[in-house]
Design a protein around this nucleic acid. Structure first.
Length: 273
DNA sequence: TTGTGTTTTACGACCTCC
DNA sequence: GGAGGTCGTAAAACACAA
């Protein structure tokens, strides 16, 4: 880039210290009509240059700041924003590679009419901005994932509560049947082990009752009502909720030869765990 | 016009790697 | 030990609402 193309945004210093513009670099020098100071474009001058040419003390008195001569002869170049062209080229270079090898730095500095140190600083700051941006997007992504998981977790907790309530309710019903004389009589009437399945009539009754209760509750997982069209074939399911387990227990005679209470305890334990 | 918040430029301190 | 990195920060430049 032609150094003469570097703009000097005099309006940019509209609110310098004390509201005064401090445009000229100090050290006894002053800018010529081309905007150059000792052959260096003003916009190119940075603190490194200030160190070389002369630097105003960091803390100065108000009186010093009010001295016009001070700005002409001692005040350092104010910070200058890079031009749009400079930033554009730097951005393009950053997109290619966000690290800066010495050769690329000097080449960029030459093309942009900037000090190599300025190019290095720009890349440092650009990396910092890029990192901040990346952290923000990473945070947003993680937060969305966390929110989804938290919602899912809440749903599972609700399901769990619902199932526990059902277990308690069914356990009470089953225990009631065990102690009911009529139920005992009915059970005794059919309590002959099936020679093929080895499941007693009472067990069939209990398992059927459990199926019926779960079915009538319309919610085996808390995810909605059962669909009636799926009932044929003996397996009632709803979106992954299946009574296969009960059927399997029934067929395998899970309750066979065991006290009903012990089976209830097992079932309850299974549910609660 | 002014107060205030944000962005950009630049630096020093410190760390890591060769 | 030097070069180049990150991190935290100062201060100028800038945007914008009141």
């Amino acid at each position: 880039m032609d150094p003469s193309a570097v703009s000097f945004d005099s309006g940019g210093a509209r609110r310098g210290a004390g509201g005064r513009q401090m445009l000229l670099f100090g050290g006894g020098g002053s800018a010529n009509s081309n905007g150059f100071l000792r052959g260096v474009p003003m916009a190119v001058l940075c603190m490194d240059d200030a160190t070389r040419v002369g630097k105003r003390p960091f803390f100065t008195t108000h009186e010093e700041l009010l001295e016009e001569e001070y700005y002409d002869e001692q005040a350092p170049e104010k910070k200058r924003r890079l031009t749009a062209e400079q930033v554009q080229l730097l951005e393009r270079s950053f997109e290619e590679e966000n690290k800066l090898e010495p050769e690329r730095k000097t080449e960029l500095a030459r093309r942009l009419g900037m000090a190599p140190r300025q190019v290095a600083v720009w890349f440092q700051n650009r990396r910092a901005r890029w990192k901040t941006k990346r952290l923000e997007t990473d945070y947003d992504r993680l937060k969305a994932a966390y929110d989804a998981l938290a919602a899912d977790h809440q749903g599972l907790l609700a399901d769990n509560d619902s199932l526990r309530a059902q277990v308690i309710s069914l356990t009470e019903k089953l225990q009631g049947k065990e102690t009911s004389p009529s139920a005992t009589t009915a059970a005794q009437e059919v309590d002959q082990p099936d020679e093929h399945t080895a499941v007693s009539g009472t067990e069939k009754l209990l398992a059927q009752q459990l199926k019926d209760d779960l079915h009538s509750s319309g919610d085996c997982t808390g995810h909605g009502a059962l669909s009636s069209e799926e009932e044929d074939g003996g397996v009632v399911s709803n979106e992954g909720c299946s009574f296969d387990l009960l059927d399997a227990m029934f067929a395998a005679g899970v309750t066979h030869h065991g006290a009903e209470e012990a089976q209830l305890a097992n079932w309850t334990s299974w549910f609660w765990n």
